[in-house]
Structures are given as structure tokens and as C-alpha cells.
Computed example of a mutant assay.
Amino acid sequence: MFKPTPNPPESDPTSPYESLDSKKLHDAADRALDHYLKPPKEPARKPSKMFIVAPGVDSESLLAHACESMKSASMMLSDFAALVGEPYCSTMLGIQQVVMNGELAVNRVLDNLDPQG
């Protein structure tokens, strides 16, 4: 049994780049897609060299200094929280708690570095 099939649709033999307008349209579409799908890369962070830590300082000394700095910051926040009223007092105490948690973490690292000390 013979079944007739329709002819495939005729395609336009011209390239989308044949005319200048289609090339411009295609380029604009590519730029738009790149804008949303390929965001520009963030430039590498370059820290300021105004204040630097001496390269030869050992990790334990750096951690000890960080711990002392955090302890001081915690005390300053506690003192300042006593001077301000609500709602800022609660905010200051919340920040103090975050600093104290950081101090505890640094102390734990120091303990892990020198468990006998």
C-alpha cells in the first residue's frame, strides 16, 4: 500500500547573516544573553598595604593577638551598651556576643595548637 507523504517545507537558503540588520540583531541578542548569563568577573581583591602584619610572625602569636583584640572589643561593646538606651543596647549586646563567640573560637584554636599550655 502506497501512502503519499507531504513534501518537507522548503527552507530559506539565506543565512541569518546575509543582511546587515540580521547580523546586528544577532549580535545584540548575544550581548543581551552574555549580560545576563555571563556576568563580568569580580576583580581580584587587593588589600591595602598601609597596615600590614610582619610576614615572619608565627600563627600562635597572631592568634593570641587576635584573641586579646577581640576581648578588648567585647569589653568596649559591653561598656558602650551600658551607656546607650534601648533598642541600641540590645544591638550592642548582640554584637558583643558575636565578638565573644569569635574570641572563644580563637581560644580553642590556641588550645589545639598548644594543649599543655
Rank of each mutant, 00 (worst) to 15 (best):
D30F: 11
A54G: 06
N7G: 06
S11V: 13
P47H: 05
P16M: 03
K23V: 15
M75W: 07
N112V: 11
K23T: 12
P16L: 06
I52T: 15
E60T: 11
L25T: 14
S22V: 00
A32H: 08
F51I: 15
G102W: 01
P43I: 06
S19P: 02
V53W: 00
S61A: 08
V98S: 13
S69D: 01
P16H: 02
P4A: 10
V53Y: 03
S90A: 11
S48H: 02
S15H: 05
S48C: 00
M50V: 14
M70F: 02
E68F: 12
P40Q: 07
S78F: 07
S61H: 03
L63I: 01
K38W: 00
L20R: 03
C89M: 09
S11G: 11
G94N: 04
K3P: 02
N112M: 13
K49L: 12
Q97R: 06
K49A: 13
E103Y: 01
P9R: 06
A54T: 07
G117W: 00
K49Q: 14
A73V: 07
C67I: 05
A54D: 15
Y17R: 08
S90E: 07
D34P: 04
S11A: 12
A29H: 10
E103M: 09
I95A: 12
S78W: 05
Y88M: 08
P16Y: 01
M1V: 12
S22C: 03
H35C: 10
G117D: 08
S74M: 00
K38T: 08
A66H: 03
M76R: 12
G102F: 01
D21S: 15
F80C: 06
K71M: 10
E86L: 06
S78Q: 09
